[in-house]
């Protein structure tokens, strides 16, 4: 059923480009304007107008002018709510989309930045099956977080997303399709289990994890220093706080992860294994370097380094 619907939709987009012209990818920022906001009565709106019709006929039949006035008021308010619904989308601007990190198969977190010059309530975003409602204050930017499911590693273009609102009364649905020309990078999924990376022999004795607890010197306290590093006894002898300065031991393992070592495996398996090794290295806080065809990353450590390596893996052909 759903497949059929999607086929019909694809056919419609092919045959009726005029209807779907805003569905082609376009670059950010995207500002909604009257030519791309559509509005139809919701199911509740249709039901409500039937009720209004019944009330109208009843009031006319019983020649009850007060009831007629009330019905007219309710009808006019409903009609006015259509304009309010339109206005709650008109002028809304999607300025940028920031993507988080996720491995293939997990949902990736997207942060949509939407700005508005006036207060808007009950704006909703649908993207890839998830939906979220939010409000924007006047002259502010709303950061809307959404989860997008991913399937495989690499650049994944964003699907079209829908901004819609049934504000204020739920009688009308105003919506607009946005198709940002942007892709998110999905990291490869690491293999579940496998051999450890081959460690150089001279590093073997350093494999024990070092906590870096060799005291080097005392220095003045700087904001942000952990409290447990304060040398209380030494500080008592001075008029300011002193902090124990630790030296990073040079005995941390050095991993050299190399694409070429895994020549026995096929491409994706290699990538999965390297990804797992990267994870392990990151978990053990050791430094590592990564060699990939056409991309050599020097040895380093830390989350930035990890992200760089994973992204490099993700972008392999």
């Amino acid at each position: 059923m759903r497949d059929q619907l999607q086929r019909i939709q694809r056919w419609a987009e092919r045959r009726l480009p005029a209807l779907t012209r805003y569905r082609r990818p376009e670059s950010l920022p995207i500002e909604l304007h009257r030519r791309r906001i559509y509005i139809v009565p919701s199911g509740f709106g249709i039901g409500f107008s039937v009720l209004l019709l019944v009330m109208l006929v009843g009031a006319l039949n019983y020649a009850n002018n007060a009831a007629l006035l009330l019905t007219c008021l309710l009808g006019a308010a409903s009609a006015a709510s259509m304009l309010v619904a339109f206005r709650s989308l008109d002028g809304l601007r999607l300025s940028h989309i920031r993507a988080g990190h996720a491995v293939a198969g997990q949902a990736i977190e997207l942060t949509l930045a939407l700005d508005s010059s006036r207060l808007r309530n009950a704006i909703r975003v649908d993207l890839g099956g998830s939906s979220i409602a939010f409000a924007i204050d006047a002259n502010t930017t709303a950061q809307v977080k959404l989860l997008l499911p991913t399937v495989q590693r690499g650049w994944q273009p964003l699907p079209r997303l829908r901004l819609w609102s049934s504000w204020p009364l739920g009688l009308f649905r105003a919506w607009s399709w946005l198709h940002p020309d942007q892709s998110v990078l999905v990291w490869p999924q690491p293999e579940v289990a496998g051999p450890s990376p081959h460690a150089p022999a001279d590093d073997a004795r350093h494999m024990r994890l070092h906590r870096g607890d060799e005291l080097a010197a005392l220095r003045d306290y700087r904001a942000g220093d952990p409290q447990r590093h304060i040398a209380w006894k030494a500080s008592a002898r001075h008029d300011h706080l002193l902090v124990k300065d630790f030296e990073q031991p040079q005995s941390r393992p050095q991993w050299q992860l190399d694409w070429r070592q895994l020549s026995a495996l096929d491409n994706e398996a290699r990538i999965a294994r390297l990804a797992r090794w990267l994870n392990e290295a990151q978990a053990q806080r050791c430094s590592y370097s990564l060699w990939l065809p056409g991309n050599e990353i020097a040895s380093s450590s830390g989350p930035l380094h990890y992200a760089r390596c994973m992204s490099a893996l993700a972008q392999l052909p």
């Binding site: 006035l69 007219c72 009808g75 006015a80």
Partner: peptide, 27 residues
């Protein structure tokens, strides 16, 4: 919203054609 809708409501009230005889039942 009601206040904004009032002019339209009044206009509709004035112009909605009245029935000269009821459609069903006596009031």
């Amino acid at each position: 919203l009601s206040a904004a809708a009032l002019p339209l409501a009044l206009l509709a009230f004035l112009l909605v054609p009245r029935l000269s005889s009821p459609l069903w039942g006596a009031p």
